[in-house]
Design a protein around this nucleic acid. Structure first.
Lengths: 295, 295
DNA sequence: CATAATACATGAATAAATTTCATGGAGCTG
DNA sequence: CAGCTCCATGAAATTTATTCATGTATTATG
């Protein structure tokens, strides 16, 4: 096979010819107009033949350019098809998202149908990330975890605040009577996630003296705590960010404006070596996540 | 169109898959094996799928790799065809060589048929370069000129020596009788090219006292001088390098081993901005010229 | 008809990708 | 097992691509 011109220049040219505009091509290729211009110039010089007619505002391919563009479109089409097939042939075609159970159940799953509807070409496979256990990024395109934001890797993207407040169901509040000051909570059923220290911290922050050991149910995992709160079994400490829907709907009520666990956050992690063939989909999903979190 | 992998990596891969060998691909692409390796690695990482099975000495495409390679071969084939057509569509498809008349007639034209036979895909168009007149490189891929080598541009390639010796036809030598020493030449018909100074210089170099003005025929151009020498009309000063065939065949005879015009040379010049679509052909032709000159 | 507005052109500076270099390791083969 | 031939790899060097900061030309527009 004989010598080919620089392939990137050909790609630039094909795009520009398709749009009949360097600027549009630049946009499609996510580069500046200047870059496209340089590439096409290089190509014209390579051939020694002008490929575009520049007549003022109009920029149309010359006959040679048009012919070349046509063939290139075909060639790149074949390439693209083949690459798509390979990228999807490994059975991992879907975006694989690892999320800790809490956010997966409470926040992500309810929102996911909207994403799938808006992006019908992207499939999503959802895995559970076990809390504080390293994620096998071999098979994961993006992970959503919870932890101390100060200790998160610099590549992580903060996503939702982890700051927690006392929360209970609206129904429980009517039963437990008015809760005017923090100390009133000592009369309530306290619900704990894994350990009792957050509640201790909270009472300390609230300036309420407490006994050494706080009473109340201890759950193994936030989802169980959440179910318990929802069921009206008591007051739990929970990140209000992921409960926005419940709070807005009035199912849950936040008690007092005294925060705890301010340093915690939900954040997005990405593999050190992402599969670049998924890069676009990952970027779309990530943008969607952040947008959802912001609204 | 969705995101494509790096195109150069695809080209590398296609070549490697076709050869079933990284080293062979490297050779075809005129790069090192290392470069091919890096590119293919990059591509495998991009897809997240291995494209080659490395089993010791064997390096064969995986099924995915084979499928991809097939499509890529087709795509690159289309590209290549299209680029060839464009490169040749400008009516300047032939290599355009500008040569000064002397070397064109005496040296190049006799050798050209062999080149064309050995390289049937390359057409050659031969132009005359006028002596000491700038060449219009817009339309010339390679020029062969004669001049002072010390003043040649640094990009020029020396090709044949321009050093000249007294030369006459074998027949003339028998007529003019034995020519034992330089002074004997003064009795001969001296033949000049453009001006009489070279002969003056020669006699000076030979240590022979001469009158102010030398007699003899003055030709406008080396080809005329050459014809005259061949016809046995006298002794001329000529670069023996381009007369190698005549000297070997015995038609011409070199007299004395006293050189003149040592600083002159025939050399190859190339355009500052070559048409890269011709680069391969130009390189082949240039290599052939140098090889012919050396033999 | 001046004035934005839009699109391509260009040179220098910067950033990124590719290639080489210099090795290492693994599998044949005589 | 020594010598070949391949592929693998990290760091350095080189080449290529891109941006930035402008410039020029043409087209709309009040």
């Amino acid at each position: 096979m004989s010598r080919l011109p620089p392939l990137n220049a050909l790609k630039c040219f094909e795009t520009a010819a398709r749009h009949g505009s360097f600027s549009k091509a630049a946009e499609e290729l996510h580069v500046t107009q200047s870059a496209v211009n340089h590439q096409i110039r290089q190509l014209e010089h390579w051939f020694g033949v002008p490929l575009f007619d520049r007549q003022g505002r109009q920029t149309l391919p010359t006959p040679e350019g048009a012919e070349l563009a046509e063939s290139l479109a075909e060639a790149f089409g074949i390439m693209d098809g083949a690459c798509q097939r390979i990228a999807k042939s490994d059975g991992k075609s879907n975006l694989t998202i690892a999320a800790i159970p809490s956010i997966a159940t409470i926040w992500l799953i309810p929102r996911l149908p909207a994403f799938l509807k808006a992006n019908p070409n992207i499939g999503v496979r959802l895995l559970h990330a076990i809390f504080e256990q390293p994620i096998d990024f071999e098979d994961v395109d993006l992970a959503i975890t919870y932890g101390d934001w100060n200790q998160a890797p610099p590549t992580a993207t903060k996503f939702l605040e982890g700051v927690s407040y006392p929360v209970c169901s609206a129904h429980y509040l009517t039963l437990a009577g008015p809760l005017r000051e923090p100390a009133d909570l000592l009369k309530c059923s306290l619900l704990h996630d894994f350990d009792r220290r957050p509640w201790s911290k909270w009472f300390k922050a609230a300036g309420t003296k407490i006994d050494d050991r706080l009473p109340g149910l201890l759950f193994e995992g936030f989802n169980l705590l959440y179910s318990s709160i929802l069921a009206g079994q008591g007051v739990g400490l929970a990140p209000t960010a992921i409960l926005a829907d419940d709070l807005k709907a009035g199912r849950l009520v936040q008690l007092f404006d005294i925060p705890v666990l301010e340093e915690k956050a939900y954040f997005i992690s990405e593999p050190a070596n992402p599969r670049e063939s998924r890069a676009d989909d990952v970027a779309i999903f990530k943008a969607w996540l952040l947008e959802q979190a912001a609204s």
